[in-house]
Amino acid sequence: MLKRRLAPWLYSTPLFIIIVAVILFPIAYTLYISFTNMNVYHWFEFETIGLENYKKALLMLDSGFLPAVLRTILWTAVNIVLQVIIAFFLALGLNSPGLKARTFYKTMLMFPWAMPAYVSILLWRMGMFNTEFGFLNKLLEMLGFSGINYLSNSTNAFISCVVVNLWQALPFMLIMMDSALQSIDKSYYESALLDGAGFWKRHLNLTLPAIRPIMAAPILMTTFLTFKQFDIVYLLTMQRGGVTGANINTVLTYVYDKAFITNNYGYSSAASILVFVLIIILSSLSRSTLKQEGV
């Protein structure tokens, strides 16, 4: 019987060893480093400096940490709101009765999701946003306008990053919305139509309440993915040898920048721990939301 009780733990040991080694232990180690002044000059001879790094991150505005947190929240909110609204109407259109090519449209619109993310981002940077031979500026010049520098200042760069993120992330949201709409019983609409309910009334009163519980999980999942988005901001504005002058750090690019570009390991680790705490708070909030939605 003891053998039976130990069996699941025994079977799980190999995976747990890996999880402890490359997830759990590094988190603990990051916590430890966050209390030290470890940097490129103090690689071995570092000292514990208490909460100094945390003070710097939280109390000094010019450290850039709090602005990065606020920017990440703004980035997440803008992207999710746009994605949900756009995906909802696109899916609604796809579900119009009589639209024969619906599967074809869906397959084609899924394309950005299928492309390797970093490849598409680099193609956007080189092919679309490039000031001299990029598609967008060539198009503007053909139409008689002068070109735009898409990545050089923070506002332009932020908008460009949102565009690329929408391009990449909309397919998933669209597929989810589409399957949510598919699951609604069509007879609901027939009685609503008989009552003479118009487009907005029908969808506000019938469609939205019906897809809410189904969409809660994918929307929350996308929210976290957007919050943790690294590649777009990094590859478009701050990669080595390609810094554009825009500063639109999100929390992840901020931590990466402090660790691997400016080599301030202790400080970067403190920022990591703060972000982790933030993520834990957000995910426990989201768990209670999901429970309320009855998922």
Binding site: P8, W9, I27, T30, I33, V255, Y256, Y265, S272, I279
Partner: peptide
């Protein structure tokens, strides 16, 4: 079904919320 099952599943989900880039330096040093 064993003691600690739910707890471990919850911890795993929590860990999954942690982006590896945040501990990348610690992993590198390790």
């Amino acid at each position: 079904r064993f003691k600690g099952r739910k707890f471990v599943l919850y911890i795993l989900l929590l860990l999954n919320a942690f982006p590896a880039i945040l501990s990348m330096f610690a992993i590198y040093r390790m």
